[in-house]
Simulated assay, not measured.
Amino acid sequence: MQYSVGVEYALHCLVYLIDAPSNESIGIKDLAEFQGLSETFLSKVFSKLSKANIVISVPGVKGGYRLSKPPEDISFWDVIEAVEGPKPIFQCKNIKDNGYLYREGCCSAPSSCTINLVMLSAEKQMRDYLRKKTLAWLNEELDRDLSKQVREETRKYFSKSNK
């Protein structure tokens, strides 16, 4: 299982939107430039985040994006599902139905495949864990892990008053 780099880009960029005043937005160009990312690719990621109601697009020359709800209401799983889509990680193909005994009809297949049940349970546990990790939690972790200077310089970079 592997999530696309779009998930990482999205999570990093969403953290920068947390401190934006509610009447301001941050442009894709600034977000892409700050992280050394492709503006085109990041636009596609933010289009998905917008469709999932994680961000709001603000049109105009000074437009951009801002969070659509408080950071404590946006989980890692919300972002993953927005960027990757809702498909399950494990996709059972019911290959047991092609097995010799089932083909010949001498055994009745169990109603649920044990392998599928284990994989679905593991996915559920992962989703539940990622739903508990929010942008607010991530922001607090970054406050602990990064120097105060780095956090302040990042906020200044995205401040409209410095542009």
Rank of each mutant, 00 (worst) to 15 (best):
I56G: 01
K132V: 06
F34L: 08
Q2D: 07
K163M: 06
Y16W: 09
V83H: 12
N23R: 11
S111I: 02
P88N: 08
F41Y: 15
I74R: 10
M119G: 00
C106P: 00
S75C: 11
V58N: 12
K87E: 15
S108V: 15
D19M: 02
V5M: 11
E81Q: 15
G27P: 02
E140W: 05
S75I: 12
Y16C: 11
E84Q: 13
H12Q: 10
K124T: 03
Q2I: 08
I80E: 12
K156F: 05
G64A: 03
V118E: 14
S25Q: 01
P71N: 05
E104N: 06
N139V: 01
W77V: 00
P71Y: 09
P86A: 15
F34M: 10
Q125E: 06
E24I: 04
S57E: 10
T134M: 12
P21E: 09
R103L: 15
S147A: 01
D30W: 07
L130N: 07
F46A: 04
S43I: 01
M119Q: 11
E72N: 07
A122M: 15
S22A: 11
Y65E: 05
K48E: 14
D73W: 07
S68W: 09
K160D: 00
V150W: 07
C92R: 00
T114F: 08
N116R: 07
G99F: 15
T154V: 10
N53H: 14
A20H: 00
D145Q: 07
N23H: 10
P59M: 01
E39I: 00
I74A: 06
A52K: 03
N139E: 15
A136S: 08
L37F: 11
D145T: 03
K62M: 08
R144Q: 06
I115F: 13
E141C: 13
G27F: 09
S25K: 03
